[in-house]
Simulated scan of single mutants.
Amino acid sequence: MLEAELLPALPEEKPLGEGFSEGEESRPQDRYFARLELSGTLERKILPPKGKGKGSQEGGRSRWVYVLRDPAFGEVPLRFPREVWQGIPFWVFQRHLGRIVLARFSPRTDAQGLWSPWHSPALGLSRRPGVEPSRFQARGRLVGVDREEGRLVVEIRPNPQGILKEPFRLILHAALALLEELPPLGSGVYLEGELRPKSRRMVVRKAEPALLWDG
Rank of each mutant, 00 (worst) to 15 (best):
Met1Gln: 09
Leu2Gln: 15
Leu6Glu: 15
Pro8Arg: 03
Pro11Tyr: 09
Pro15Arg: 05
Leu16Cys: 08
Leu16His: 07
Glu18Ala: 06
Glu22Phe: 11
Glu24Thr: 05
Arg27Trp: 03
Pro28Cys: 02
Asp30Cys: 02
Arg31Thr: 14
Arg35Ala: 08
Arg35Thr: 07
Ser39Tyr: 04
Gly40Arg: 00
Thr41Phe: 09
Leu42Phe: 06
Lys45Thr: 05
Lys54Asn: 10
Gln57Ala: 15
Gly59Cys: 02
Gly60Val: 02
Pro71Leu: 08
Phe73Pro: 05
Glu75Tyr: 10
Val76Gly: 00
Pro77Lys: 01
Pro81Asn: 09
Trp91Val: 12
Ala103Gly: 08
Phe105Val: 00
Phe105Gln: 03
Thr109Ser: 07
Thr109Ala: 07
Trp115Phe: 14
Pro117Thr: 04
Trp118Ile: 11
Ala122Met: 01
Ser126Tyr: 08
Phe136Thr: 01
Arg139Thr: 12
Leu142Pro: 08
Gly144Asp: 10
Leu152Gly: 14
Leu152Trp: 12
Val153Leu: 15
Val154Asp: 02
Arg157Cys: 12
Ile163Glu: 06
Ile163Trp: 14
Lys165Arg: 11
Lys165Glu: 11
Pro167Asp: 07
Phe168His: 06
Ala174Ser: 12
Leu179Asp: 09
Glu180Ala: 13
Pro184Gly: 03
Pro197Tyr: 07
Arg201Trp: 14
Val204Trp: 12
Trp213Gly: 00
